[in-house]
């Protein structure tokens, strides 16, 4: 089951919260690296990123986003029947962050709360998981919080953000169409190899050493096979998008905006060109917000097309892809939903 349709699910609103702290990929690096960084910024398209304060977790951003969203859409705390958190940066390895947030947000104890371990592909999956629960009619209102704390000062790619999205049961809502996929054979392309049960952290994992590119790293750091991720993204996403368009019956011209996970400029531009889309139809936030993992689609919705989304009817195609390997796309229609301004916390 790769493709499916959900009925009776209304997209009610979404809020994005990013850290106040801004990093410049060019200015916030050692002087001898600036020329190399300028070349990097030209190619990956990421000039500035947001990074949490030391004390801040993803859940702190998501908490602020959720409080604002509930206020804007006028839901009471007791209305929320499900709280799903999609993140790879939980507060603790256990217990689930969603359950901690149920209490912190003062939601009722009858709330279904759990975490889902997905990264860059997470947003379409998040809509699908909560959407399935609502579509059946057993849950009327639910929230899904998506995002990560993944920025570091050294790595020029990743940036932090937390988002909250509200869905509710509505028999008159237009159908949502999904195309969701997984390929675990590529799990080593993006991974934290140390710190789980397969390879628990040992002292020697924390000793810095220089890698083949002269960068200091530890064995406990993130592994990212750039060429493998680029090939996966540019080979898999265009046909998946075309397949979903065919399944949903939407002509490409009927889609108001295509919102892709903000990976890097090379990947995103290759996907856009392969699909024959104009830049106007493909909003981007890489320059100012970097790669915010699963939050990058909602970050782009808030930062680039918030006013258009609030002002009328829009049909969107959302497509997330990355760690897993995992990729998911959906077509949703939005009308009358709330999109508060970007929050900085």
């Amino acid at each position: 089951m790769s493709q499916s349709t959900l009925k009776n699910v209304k997209y009610v609103g979404m809020t994005t919260c990013v850290p106040k702290r801004i990093l410049s990929n060019i200015d916030d690096c050692p002087p001898h690296m600036q020329s190399e960084r300028e070349r990097l910024v030209r190619n990956i398209g990421i000039s500035h990123r947001r990074i949490c304060s030391e004390w801040q977790c993803f859940s702190d951003l998501a908490f602020v986003a959720t409080e604002k969203l509930l206020e804007e859409i006028g839901w009471q705390k007791e209305d929320v029947e499900a709280l799903i958190v999609v993140t790879q940066s939980p507060d603790y390895l256990i217990p689930a962050t969603a359950i901690i947030l149920q209490d912190r947000l003062k939601l009722t104890k009858t709330t279904i709360a759990f975490d889902v371990n997905l990264g860059c592909s997470g947003y379409p999956f998040a809509l699908y998981i909560l959407g399935c629960m609502i579509s059946a009619g057993t849950i009327k209102k639910g929230l899904v919080l998506v995002g990560d704390k993944c920025a570091t000062v050294i790595d020029p790619l990743f940036s932090d953000a937390g988002t909250a999205t509200a869905l509710e049961y509505d028999p008159s809502a237009p159908p949502m169409y999904f195309d969701l996929n997984s390929d675990g054979s590529g799990y080593q392309a993006i991974m934290l190899p140390v710190g789980g049960h397969r390879q628990p952290t040992a002292v020697h994992h924390l000793v810095p050493h220089k890698d083949e590119n002269g960068n200091w790293r530890t064995e406990a750091g993130l592994i990212l096979d750039g060429p493998a991720v680029l090939s996966f993204s540019t080979q898999q996403i265009p046909p998946a998008v075309n397949s979903l368009l065919e399944y949903s019956g939407y002509d490409k011209d009927k889609i108001d905006y295509f919102l892709f996970h903000q990976a890097n400029r090379m990947i995103n531009e290759t996907i856009r060109k392969k699909l024959g889309l104009t830049p106007e139809k493909v909003p981007m936030t890489l320059h100012d917000f970097g790669n915010t993992s699963g939050a990058s689609i909602p970050v782009t919705m808030t930062a680039r097309i918030r006013e258009a989304l609030e002002s009328g009817h829009n049909t969107l195609l959302l497509s997330g892809f990355g760690i897993g390997l995992s990729w998911g796309s959906c077509v949703i229609e939005i009308e009358g939903a709330k999109f508060p301004e970007l929050i900085e916390a």
Partner: peptide, 12 residues
């Protein structure tokens, strides 16, 4: 400049 960034550019 023959580095990981160059590799991405050549693959594209």
């Amino acid at each position: 400049e023959w580095d990981s960034l160059a590799a991405l550019g050549v693959i594209v």
